[in-house]
């Protein structure tokens, strides 16, 4: 039981994440991909008159069950079997974040940044609202995310997925180094 409460090392979490690829293929020749579920939900809830959202989303409803599972998995891992200790971050990361004015290092997300009142500050608005928008817009533009390109596409040795994954990381690295400090200082 202790194992469930402790965070899992990379060599446990990584292979389990990778095994979702053969699990979905064996169940129904399905390709791992999470960002397409955002399109699915848009198509189901508010397609408007947009051709991009007018398709038979029910045909691919398997992935909505999968993401419902991810939500449950998050509840199990983050609430039921929550790690009581703070994330064991590299000291250099903690030092850098302290320099940016952060004080709280417990939990998976910094509570001082990700909270309801913060939504009404420019900083919180940029982190959650603008950030979330970019995740949804960018992944659809790239036709895949860390799972669809980064895991499934790379597993299938698709070079465009390597370009996509390099762009995800390149964008994130540039942003975290050069832009995030200004946002955290707001």
């Amino acid at each position: 039981m202790d194992f469930l409460y402790k965070p899992w090392p990379w060599y446990v979490a990584g292979p389990i994440i990778g095994l979702s690829v053969p699990a979905l293929l064996l169940l129904g020749n399905k390709k791992l991909g999470v960002s397409s579920t955002l399109r699915q939900i848009c198509a189901a809830c508010y397609p408007g008159n947009l051709s991009f959202l007018q398709y038979d989303w029910k045909k691919d409803s398997w992935n909505l069950f999968m993401v419902a599972g991810i939500l449950i998995g998050g509840f199990l891992g983050g609430v039921v079997f929550a790690n009581p200790e703070p994330v064991a971050l590299a000291p250099a990361t903690v030092a850098w974040l302290r320099e940016q004015g952060l004080h709280q290092f417990d939990g998976l997300l910094p509570g001082e940044l990700f909270q309801w009142q913060a939504l009404f500050s420019l900083r919180g608005f940029l982190l959650m609202v603008v950030g979330g928008f970019m995740v949804g817009f960018g992944t659809r533009y790239a036709r895949g995310c860390t799972s669809g390109h980064g895991i499934m596409g790379l597993s299938a040795l698709q070079w465009p997925s390597l370009v996509a994954t390099a762009s995800f990381f390149g964008g994130g690295i540039l942003f975290s180094y050069f832009v995030l400090p200004y946002i955290l200082a707001l």
Partner: peptide, 18 residues
């Protein structure tokens, strides 16, 4: 599959902003 995937993402701390 989603539950196991989500559990591994969470316990592996891949969902952590930090």
């Amino acid at each position: 599959v989603g539950i196991v995937f989500g559990l591994a993402l969470t316990k592996g701390e891949a969902i952590s902003w930090f």
